[in-house]
Each structure stands twice: as C-alpha cells, then as structure tokens.
C-alpha cells in the first residue's frame, strides 16, 4: 500500500458516499445517470468475485463489500425508490455500444484465459468507460448540480491517483499491469474536459455549464 493508492481508494469511497447521500437526502436522482450506476455495479460485481475465493486483507475485503453494497443501493434508489425523479429522457446513452466491445476486448486481450481473469479484465475495461453515460447526460442537460460535480471530481481523481500508484509500484516493487494501466489512462483522460471545467469555473457559485 502507498499514499497514492490509499488516497485514491479514499477518493473513490468519498465519491460513492457523496452520490449515495445526495440521492438519499434530496430524495431525488435528477441529473444522475442510472446507466452509469448500473455499469459501476457490474464493474464491482465482476471484479470482486475473488471475495469468494481469496482473502487479501481486512481493508481489501471491507472496501470491496462497501463498494458493492453502495453501488447496488444507489441503483436501487434510482430505479426503485426514487424512480419518479429519474430523468430517463436525458439518460439515453446506448450502453450496448460500451458493453459489447468491452466484452469482446476482454476475451481477446487478457493476461490469462480463465473465467475469473476474463471477468476481471472485463471489469477493468468497463470501468474505464462506465462514466460516459453520466458525462453524456450532463452534456445533454447542459448543467450539473454542484454536488454532482464534486462526485465526478472525486471519481475522476481516484484513477488519476492510481496512475501514480502504478508508477510507485513499478519503481519500488517491480509491479506492472499493462491492462490496468492502459485502461486507467483512458479512464482518466475521459475526465480531462470535466477536470478543466471543474477547476476553472469555480463551480461553488453556479451550476456547471458546458
């Protein structure tokens, strides 16, 4: 464990909690892409199946359980409890254009052709594009609530910090996973436009406008 990975995980946890609390407290999922949240639930489910097969550390296990629990709770709030506030018209990204190519790629390019490894690879590739429906929805509505921008900032920051974690681990531990690194770079690049606006627009004053 290093400072980049720890702050990255905490940033990721913060994003997940921010979103869940925002929906729960405001009793509304307006402006939130349910499709992205479903994709994240799939990402965690396919990546954390090793919860059933291997124990790495209490921290690792706890975080995985929290991530999976919060992801499904968020999906439940959006599609069940507060479905009346779900803005389906603007959440119109065709996720099959993400899932099918990612599924195909994970079968073609992976470290090992075993079910668990292919599912892990699928989750790594899917996570790198899972935010697209949310960014697409914001571009369609033309704005985002301030709290949603903080959620996106923390979510984007987490994988950026992981990039530094991988540099650290390559230098100090000789650890190197090309699949995770390439997907992590793609994932972080997708946030660049948003990061620029988040930093330059000083959103604390008005809603995010493209």
């Amino acid at each position: 464990m290093n400072v980049f990975r720890l702050t990255g995980d905490l940033s990721h946890l913060a994003a997940i909690i921010i979103l869940l609390l925002k929906i729960w407290k405001s009793r509304s999922c307006a402006g939130i892409s349910g499709k992205s949240q479903i994709l994240f639930a799939i990402v965690f489910t396919t990546r954390y199946l090793d919860l059933l097969t291997s124990f790495i550390s209490l921290y690792n296990t706890c975080m995985k359980v929290i991530y999976i629990g919060c992801a499904y709770a968020t999906v439940y709030l959006i599609y069940a409890k507060f479905r009346a506030t779900y803005d389906g018209n603007h959440d119109s990204f065709r996720v099959e254009f993400l899932v099918v190519p990612v599924g195909g790629l994970s079968v073609l390019i992976n470290h090992d052709f075993s079910p668990l490894e292919i599912l892990w690879t699928f989750s790594i590739y899917l996570e790198s594009v899972a935010i697209l429906p949310q960014l697409f929805m914001i571009s369609k509505t033309g704005e985002a609530e301030t709290i949603t921008t903080h959620y996106l900032f923390c979510l984007g920051l987490y994988r950026a910090l992981y990039l530094f974690n991988w540099i650290w681990r390559f230098y100090f531990e000789g650890f190197f996973d090309m699949i995770a690194i390439v997907a992590g770079v793609v994932q972080t690049v997708l946030y660049c436009d948003f990061f620029y606006l988040y930093v330059t627009k000083g959103w604390f004053s008005r809603p995010y406008r493209l």
Binding site: I56, S57, H111, E173, G174, F176, A180
Partner: peptide, 10 residues
C-alpha cells in the same frame, strides 16, 4: 522480473 498482478488492488 515483473510480477504478475497479485490483484491486491481495489
């Protein structure tokens, strides 16, 4: 050599 991924990351 470079280790294979121990999958110890979240």
């Amino acid at each position: 050599g470079l280790d294979i991924n121990p999958k110890d990351e979240l």
